[in-house]
Design a binder for these strands. Structure first.
Length: 254
DNA sequence: CGTAATACG
């Protein structure tokens, strides 16, 4: 089974750029998109279709902002949008699919904002979601979390760690939440397999950053400890264009 | 700089 995550930074922008063309080549079983920045009524029915997938959209209430969509080949046992907490759910950040062996969460974690204004909301979101994961783990369930975490975990996860210690995305109080997830029964699948690799998944559109590879690793797969032996590979598709993020795939053994 | 609506990342 192959799962691919991609922060599209505007579903309509990706359509305009014809930038979904890589999908048949990568051929994921599930596609997790973040920052769709659209509702279904802003595009045609045809534009929402990605063959041969079926899609679930969870847009934010606010126009042109945030939002997630998950496309799958094989129908999950069930699916839910949000986590039942109003002030988080209105931003369309969460879609959960239930498969026989695990829950798959597609999540667009909050950005800390200009002047770190939204860091408190972001930290609350990490906290609330970890509690949900704790409950599921306590029930013996396995979980795969993927999406844009909006935080680089360690110095190895961004090109310029020193100069970003006071910027959202690399604040100590944000990074410690990734530590907490790992302490609560998750593995960072990419880092487990590639402890020394310096590869990024996001580059600002400014300053020619992508060409110069001045980036951050913000898009992760956190998998329950018990699932780690089923992880065959994690692939960062650095060459796939169309957004300021690149797609990342998780390949699971059956 | 880019996406999208006048803010946000």
């Amino acid at each position: 089974m192959k799962i691919t995550t991609w922060n599209v930074n505007g579903f309509r922008a990706v359509l305009r750029k014809n930038a979904f063309e890589w999908i048949p080549d990568v051929d994921p079983d599930v596609l997790c998109f973040q920052e769709i920045k659209a509702t279904l009524d802003q595009i045609s029915a045809e534009e929402a279709i990605i063959e041969p997938y079926e899609g679930i959209w969870n847009p934010a209430e606010r126009k042109g902002y945030s939002g997630t969509a998950t496309y799958y080949k094989n129908k999950p046992l069930s699916h839910e949008k949000g986590f039942g907490i109003e002030h988080f759910d209105i931003e369309g950040r969460v879609i959960r699919l239930k498969y026989p062996d695990f829950y798959l969460y597609n999540i667009y974690f909050p950005n800390g904002g200009e002047g770190n204004k939204r860091v408190p909301y972001k930290l609350e979101f990490y906290e609330a979601f970890l509690e949900i994961c704790d409950d599921l783990h306590a029930q013996g369930e396995n979980i795969i979390i993927t999406g844009d975490f909006n935080t680089a975990h360690q110095e190895i996860d961004l090109a310029n760690p020193k100069q970003n210690e006071k910027n959202t995305g690399f604040l100590p109080e944000e990074r410690v939440w990734i530590d907490r997830y790992l302490e609560h029964g998750f593995k960072d699948a990419y880092r487990e397999l590639y402890p020394e690799e310096e590869k990024y998944t996001w580059w600002t559109y400014r300053f020619n950053s992508r060409e110069r590879d001045i980036g951050w690793r913000l898009d992760y797969y956190l998998v329950s400890d018990a699932l780690m032996d089923r992880v065959e590979d994690v692939v960062i598709h650095s060459d796939i264009m169309g957004s300021d993020h690149c797609p990342v795939s998780l390949i699971l053994k059956e």
